[in-house]
Simulated scan of single mutants.
Amino acid sequence: MMQVDEKKLQEMIGKMLGDVGAAMGAALVLLGDKLGLYKTLASAGPLSSAELASRTGTAERYVREWAAGQAAAGYINYDPASARYSMSPEQALLLADENGPAFFPAMYEIAAAAVRDEPKVADAFRSGGGVGWHEHDACLFRGTERFFRPSYAAHLVSEWIPALEGVKEKLERGATVADVGCGHGASLILMAQAFPKSQFCGFDYHEPSILAARERAREAEVADRVKFERASAKDFPGSYDLVAFFDCLHDMGDPVGAGAHVKQALKPGGTWMVVEPFAGDRTEDNFNPIGRIFYAASTTICVPGSLSQEVGLGLGAQAGEARIREVLNAGGFSRVRLATATPFNLILEARP
């Protein structure tokens, strides 16, 4: 038997205890979000467990246990003198503000989908097959929208589009835009609100997402300029000044074929904006907290999704800039540059 280093063993136990606590606590975060506990505590706290239960229409005994667990995690605060719970501005920003820069309950929804769909992914591990996007638990679709929307709201119009050569000016004058793999339409609606002279079309193969996107557009009062239709990345119709892929190229079975179709769909002088998860080119470059999350999502969502489709390239969510460039080049785009980046995303500009 290998000799065990006791110090390293204790360090590993401590790390795994923390991870198990986070995994067990995921259900508590989902409950806090779903039942309005975070939002109520952020707006009306400090509150006792009884007061929080009364304001949210929940049972005090459950709320008491939930609040103690969240305080133990450091997600909310507890004052022993008053036996009341509260949230700091930082806690409230991350757990109660859906329009803030990072809304973490959405990430827990994605994590919940990964756990609920584990049997399907296990079967794919054994068979080498895939699990289509449409085959996942519904909380994945909601969580994805809520997770990406704050980042898009913070960066898309103010930073990413201005980083593309001449694109902002086209949109201000009036241009045609396609968002492929649009999901619930968050990115397209943001662009439509910012550029009222332009026309926008969103495409996704997932019909329930298209229906949700149409409803979002009506709620945002941009449905007259934003259309959503069911289509794949290799057959969407129309001709556009800008085609955008937001965090979806790596999910596609044939991203090279998708690129070839984008090339045909672009008007002369048009631009393909490809937004992908941030990643270094070497595997070890991504051994960090963000890489850990993205590799987990890639294992349970992205790679299975790609392998469920024709070609099944299986790029994965941590492909890195160099590999993405190879795919864009193979699709017929000879001019590719990194326009800008955030800790979560790479934004590439591609032209034929």
Rank of each mutant, 00 (worst) to 15 (best):
I161R: 02
D254Q: 09
T58Y: 08
A50G: 11
R323F: 01
S187Q: 15
G130M: 01
A178D: 07
A279S: 14
R325G: 02
L328V: 12
W272P: 11
A153V: 00
N288S: 13
H250M: 08
Q70L: 10
G36T: 04
P150M: 00
E60I: 04
Y108C: 02
M273I: 06
D251H: 15
A186M: 07
V256G: 11
M16K: 12
L313E: 13
A244Q: 08
V275A: 02
N329Y: 09
Y240P: 08
A339H: 03
A186Q: 15
L338K: 14
T340F: 00
V4T: 12
M16Q: 15
A154C: 03
F125R: 09
L188E: 07
V222S: 08
T56Y: 04
S334G: 15
G57P: 13
I290Y: 08
E118P: 01
G174M: 01
A350H: 04
A154M: 01
A212W: 13
A217N: 07
E310T: 02
A175S: 14
Q91Y: 08
G129E: 05
G314R: 15
R149G: 00
A81L: 07
P101A: 00
M12V: 13
P119M: 01
V327R: 10
S187W: 07
M2V: 14
F195P: 04
D251L: 02
L28T: 11
Y75E: 11
S239Q: 13
A96M: 09
N329A: 06
T56P: 11
Y75C: 04
D251P: 05
A175K: 12
V336N: 15
H134F: 00
A138I: 07
V327I: 11
E219Q: 14
A233V: 09
G305I: 01
G331Y: 07
G253T: 10
V121M: 00
L338V: 10
A111E: 06
E65M: 05
G128D: 07
N288P: 14
G32T: 08
G129S: 02
E221M: 04
F125V: 14
G21H: 08
L41K: 09
D224S: 14
I293Y: 08
D281G: 05
P105T: 04
A106S: 15
